[in-house]
Design a protein around this nucleic acid. Structure first.
Length: 552
DNA sequence: ATCCATAGCGCC
DNA sequence: AGGGCGCTATGGAT
């Protein structure tokens, strides 16, 4: 049974929808009454159908009412509008009320005036109609099963995203403050520069003979370097390292510390860490490939340096798991490459390439594989490519085909049905003009370069996007398994972090091994769900630790 | 004052 | 001539 939920002024309208498509009488509930409705219906396991998990679910969580299953119509709409798995498109494609919206911050108490209805109001009938349109479109698809899995995974991911923000990542602010103080000196007044940075700035100015230099300004630094006879073309680390000058070392040190201060310093700490938890806003499918993004807090770029402050509470452990070489494994499965599938069963896929005699070292295996996924043509990766083509013709052929399609301006599609955007008009125009008789050599060169750029995008899209689908299925199945574990002293394991191919579960210490098993079983299940009997193994690195820094 | 592009670096 | 992001600071434009 589905339960359709439509926000309206002051509350929601709830419609129960039977398997025959008939609806019960609409019930109008205040927001405060919705948790009661959920509690009454949840044990039977209905599927909650709503426009935006990000709008409804945080309120339910604050009311202590988790939900087992949902269907997020807006996320589904975004997939279905583009998917080449729908031969006839989605009838509601032009209805911009279902297009992308400015989501409210997850922890903001949503005022009903700014519900996400930019293109108009969503009445209960509209929500119900969109639900039916989507169901019919999926049913008519030649890939209905894959699309259903994708939409279920996407929706489960949206539930997880709200839960991650609600629970938060355990974060020891005092430990982080101590790290900052140790590396930078005491916290400066607002706008001030910490002592360690001030000292480094003084050294840089002295070594470059540039008394007023602001080391935070790349153009100024570049001019000062030139004045001191250092002919660097940029101020980036890899460039500066090539010069032997006494200003280089303090400059690199300055940049490193300034980065820490700017991205994860005291301001970040007070903005994003409260009551011992770091609570970023996750944006499911915030990236074209289907990966998540975050808004604020930089949660998906948490530097290794900072992870020591991610610590489990007393009596608890962190189970940190990441999928080893996920993208090559996904490619092996989707392309049905038997030789690469065999390599996947060896555990360390890169080492297996060495053992199969494809390349001579593990480092070469990694460079070559990433080169194949990203479209490297030159350098070490380019040189190793012929060996990969010979050994894994199906896998390499798959990404090559995606690249060629992109170069022709065509759309490519992931395993479960997420399709790439079409190239921009400017791209098409450049290609068109390069084909005209009067096209200059420069125009043709630029058009070819742009075509290859788009080809690299589509090449990576099919792999990164399918890996994101695997990760969502993993996450969804893990969430279900964790919910089934018995609490210890009233405490249950909880997902607290998700990062593309990595999860952290915070758990009572007694359950750590069971959680680790659940994480592995979920990975196995995700592989079966997507690819059936592909022969590809999805291997995890799992660590049960007190602090994130101890993992991996 | 506010918006935007760029540089540079962090993560996968 | 290696894909996808977010974030900060800077500096120019409005």
């Amino acid at each position: 049974m589905d339960v359709v939920v439509a926000p309206e002024d002051g509350g929601v309208v709830v419609l129960e929808l039977g398997p025959d498509g008939r609806t019960g009488a609409p019930r109008r509930l205040e927001w405060e009454q919705l948790p009661g409705c959920v509690r009454a219906l949840e044990p039977a396991g209905p599927r909650w159908v709503w426009a935006d998990t990000a709008v409804v679910y945080p309120r339910l969580l604050r009311a202590g009412t988790p939900v087992a299953r949902a269907h997020d119509l807006r996320l589904a709409h975004a997939v279905l509008v583009r998917s080449t798995y729908l031969a006839d498109g989605l009838p509601s494609a032009a209805d911009d009320r279902w297009g992308p919206q400015e989501h409210p911050a997850a922890d903001a108490e949503p005022s009903l005036l700014d519900l996400p209805t930019a293109g108009g109001t969503l009445e209960p009938a509209d929500v119900l109609a969109e639900h039916r349109v989507q169901q019919q479109a999926v049913t008519a698809s030649a890939h209905a099963g894959r699309l259903r899995l994708l939409l279920a995974a996407e929706s489960a991911g949206a539930l997880v995203a709200a839960e991650l923000t609600h629970v938060g990542l355990p974060f020891d602010a005092a430990a982080h403050d101590a790290l900052l103080t140790q590396l930078l000196g005491p916290q400066p007044l607002p706008g001030g520069r910490p002592a360690a940075l001030e000292a480094l700035a003084a050294r840089i100015r002295a070594e470059l003979g540039a008394p007023g230099l602001n080391p935070d300004s790349p153009p100024e630094v570049l001019r000062a370097l030139h004045g001191a006879g250092v002919e660097a073309t940029t101020t980036r680390q890899s460039e500066l390292e090539r010069f032997d000058h006494p200003a280089v070392a303090p400059l690199l040190e300055y940049k490193k510390l300034a980065r820490l201060l700017g991205a994860n310093g005291w301001a970040w700490l007070s903005d994003w860490v409260h009551d011992g938890r770091f609570r970023p806003d996750y944006l499911p499918a915030g990236v074209v490939t289907g990966r998540w993004a975050t808004r604020g807090g930089g949660a998906l770029q948490l530097p290794k340096q900072v992870r020591a402050a991610v610590v489990a509470g007393p009596g608890r452990r962190l189970v940190v798991a990441d999928a080893a070489q996920l993208e090559p494994r996904v490619l092996a499965a989707m392309s049905d490459d038997r030789a690469m599938a065999r390599a996947s069963r060896a555990g360390d896929l890169y080492q297996a390439l060495v053992d199969q005699g494809v390349v001579d070292t593990r480092a070469h295996a990694k460079v070559a594989m990433l080169g194949a996924l990203y479209g490297a043509t030159s350098g070490e990766a380019g040189q190793l490519m012929p060996r990969l083509l010979r050994s894994y013709p199906a896998a390499t052929g798959w990404v090559e085909a995606a690249a060629r399609a992109g170069e022709r301006g065509e759309v490519v599609t992931t395993w479960l049905g997420r399709s790439s955007p079409v190239p921009p008009d400017s791209w098409r125009e450049a290609q068109r003009r390069a084909g005209l008789p009067e096209a200059t050599a420069a125009e043709q060169r630029r058009a070819r370069a742009q075509a290859r750029d788009w080809g690299r995008f589509t090449r990576n899209f099919v792999v990164q996007g399918t890996a994101a689908e695997w990760a969502l299925c993993w996450l969804a199945d893990l969430r279900r398994r964790l919910g089934a574990l018995p609490p210890v002293a009233g405490r249950s394991p909880a997902l607290v972090y998700f990062l593309h191919d990595e999860v952290i579960v915070e758990t009572p210490a007694e359950l750590a091994e069971e959680v680790a098993d659940a994480v592995r079983e979920a990975a196995h299940r995700a592989g079966r769900l997507l690819f059936g009997d592909s022969g590809v193994t999805f291997v995890l690195d799992v660590a049960c630790v007190g602090s994130y820094a101890e993992a991996g």
